[in-house]
Amino acid sequence: MTISIEDVRAAAELVALGLRTSARPTDGNPYGRLVERYRTQTLFRDTVDAIAGGLGLTVLGAPARTGLVLSTQPGSVFAVRMGDLRSTGMSADEKLISGLIVLGVAAYAFPQEADLDSTEVKTVEVSALDKFIRDTIDRVQMIPGDDDTVDGQARVAAEIYRRTAAFRPKDRQPGPAKGCTQFAVAEVLGWLVERGAARPMPQLGPSTFQLTDRFRLLVADVAGGEALEAMRSVKH
């Protein structure tokens, strides 16, 4: 069996849809049909994987309700950096805090490695997640290693997090103001929404979010390191 130019075009279209994290597959739309082909046709799947690899991407999976989930290879032009979280730029301390929060979301939602194999829906709430991260700080700060390593950066971030106020009110509206950790948590969760890794759940509360399969697969693809394991050891 051979692959046609139309099949290559369809495979490239699926990769493009995977990069558009707001796109959602359904049984009847083109995205849903392409995802089904990826899940059931070996040759088409191999073609999609090859196209993604040529773009510096790796296909982590294609859950029916999420679509194609992609991660970036080292040096990929599609790589996402903490500095991309805010268009106006972030300070070094803010980037460290944001990185710690992403680890915190992973540890909070998936406290055991086996949890990454479950498709159970996970929800997080801003103040509860902020409290969880604060409860993990002592253990993260005990991690050995140089400050320029990933775990060392987490240790530095934990100290910054500790000395930053948990909550500061806005002047004229509800919610945390910029400069406190609850604001940073809400900002990171909003960023995950933009990446298709979470969705807001206002029916459960104004600061509650549901994590998607995309986030679960991205966490499973990343080597956790000692910082993640230290945070996972704290019960919530």
Rank of each mutant, 00 (worst) to 15 (best):
M1H: 13
S4I: 07
E6K: 10
E6N: 08
A12K: 13
L14T: 05
L17F: 02
L17C: 07
G18R: 06
L19Y: 12
T21N: 05
T21H: 15
P25F: 06
P30Q: 03
P30Y: 01
Y31A: 05
G32F: 03
L34Q: 14
V35S: 06
E36L: 07
E36F: 02
Y38C: 06
R39D: 11
R39G: 04
T40L: 10
Q41G: 09
F44K: 07
F44D: 08
V48C: 09
I51R: 07
I51D: 11
L57A: 10
A62W: 01
P63V: 04
R65A: 14
R65G: 10
T66V: 11
G67S: 05
P74T: 01
P74V: 09
V77D: 14
V77M: 15
A79G: 09
A79F: 05
V80T: 12
V80F: 07
M82W: 03
G83R: 13
S87L: 14
S87H: 12
S87P: 04
T88N: 04
T88M: 05
G89A: 11
M90K: 06
D93K: 02
D93I: 02
E94R: 13
K95D: 00
L96N: 12
I97Y: 00
L103K: 03
G104Q: 09
Y108M: 09
Y108W: 09
A109E: 15
E113F: 07
A114W: 01
D117I: 00
T119F: 11
E120Q: 11
V121T: 15
V121W: 05
K122N: 04
T123N: 14
T123A: 15
V126W: 07
A128R: 15
K131M: 06
I137W: 06
D138S: 15
R139T: 13
G145C: 10
T149C: 06
T149H: 00
V150P: 10
D151C: 11
G152C: 07
Q153Y: 01
R155I: 11
R155W: 09
A157C: 04
A157K: 00
Y161I: 09
R162P: 14
A165H: 08
A165S: 15
A166S: 15
F167E: 05
P169M: 13
K170I: 12
Q173V: 15
P174V: 13
A177F: 08
K178W: 00
G179H: 08
C180Q: 04
C180E: 10
T181L: 02
A184Q: 11
V185N: 01
E187A: 10
E187Y: 06
V188W: 00
V193P: 00
V193S: 03
R195P: 01
G196I: 13
A197E: 10
Q203F: 12
Q203M: 12
G205I: 08
G205H: 12
F209R: 03
Q210Y: 00
D213E: 15
D213V: 09
R216S: 04
L217A: 11
D221I: 08
V222S: 09
A223M: 05
A223C: 01
E226D: 13
L228H: 04
A230H: 03
M231Y: 09
S233K: 10
S233M: 12
S233P: 03
K235W: 11
K235N: 14
H236P: 02
